[in-house]
């Protein structure tokens, strides 16, 4: 029965979207399936939530208790670990797509297309080849292999699924909305992420200065709260 698998995925913290879990998503799209999931999750102290009206389903805390709030606060203090690999990879893909970015749920990303664009742009190529977020890389590997590893990293984190193995096509999953919402939330709560605080090129001394500024801003935020 699909509802059993659906519940197990929800409990495991998976985002049930039509791209990655189509069958389970269909279960939750039916009235019966959704009611069954809601009732079961409610009985164990959680609830069924969605990222937006047509977004992925996931399991959420039923009540934002003091303990849960405290946990979220702590997680936000170290949110970089959650953002770092995915943001870098997605932004690299976005840059490779020029004026027609396709980095949203359901969009297809082909390794060969990204590689083709990277070969045309030295800056993009160096960005990809110098990426430290992808593990298991070698200096002498081709750009195609490196991009494949990038996409595999996204797949492992649940943000993409291998849609066409032959052509190296990956489809962005509904979980990506979680990332965008997280970024939007951070942007709303971190005034230093405004346009005027960011520059495209920085030198080392400037980087140190900005590091100090960031620490000062963070400290100020901590004092305020």
């Amino acid at each position: 029965m699909r509802i059993a698998t659906t519940l197990k995925l929800l409990v495991a913290g998976e985002f049930i979207c039509p791209q990655r879990y189509p069958d389970e998503f269909d279960v939750l799209e039916t009235q019966d399936g959704r009611t069954a999931a809601e009732e079961w999750l409610q009985s164990i102290g959680y609830r069924l939530a969605r990222l937006h009206d047509e977004g992925a389903y996931f399991m959420a805390h039923a009540i934002a208790s003091t303990e849960v709030r405290s946990q979220i606060r702590e997680e936000m203090k170290t949110v970089r670990t959650k953002l770092q690999p995915v943001v870098t990879i997605l932004e690299t893909i976005r840059q490779s797509q020029g004026r027609e970015p396709r980095v949203h749920a359901g969009d297809m990303v082909y390794v060969s297309e990204v590689a083709e664009e990277a070969r045309k742009s030295a800056m993009l190529e160096s960005r990809i080849m110098e990426m430290r977020e992808v593990s298991g890389t070698r200096h002498d590997e081709s750009i195609l292999v490196r991009i494949t590893k990038m996409m595999e990293r996204l797949r492992d984190d649940g943000y993409a699924r291998l849609s066409n193995e032959t052509s190296g096509g990956y489809q962005i999953t509904g979980k990506v909305d979680y990332l965008y919402q997280l970024i939007a939330y951070i942007s709303a709560h971190a005034p230093h992420l405004g346009d005027d605080k960011l520059v495209d090129q920085i030198d080392q001394a400037d980087a140190q200065l900005r590091l100090d500024t960031a620490s000062a801003v963070t400290s100020a935020g901590a004092t305020d709260s």
Binding site: A12, I72, R73, M76, Y185, A190, I202, G221
Partner: peptide
């Protein structure tokens, strides 16, 4: 921001207000 601020780890946020659903994601 992540590239410019290698020492930045996260933000201090006030969670006293209404918490958006995605932040309550649990496993």
């Amino acid at each position: 921001w992540l590239r410019q601020q290698p020492g930045w780890m996260g933000v201090e946020v006030d969670i006293d207000a209404e918490v958006p659903d995605f932040l309550l994601a649990a496993h």
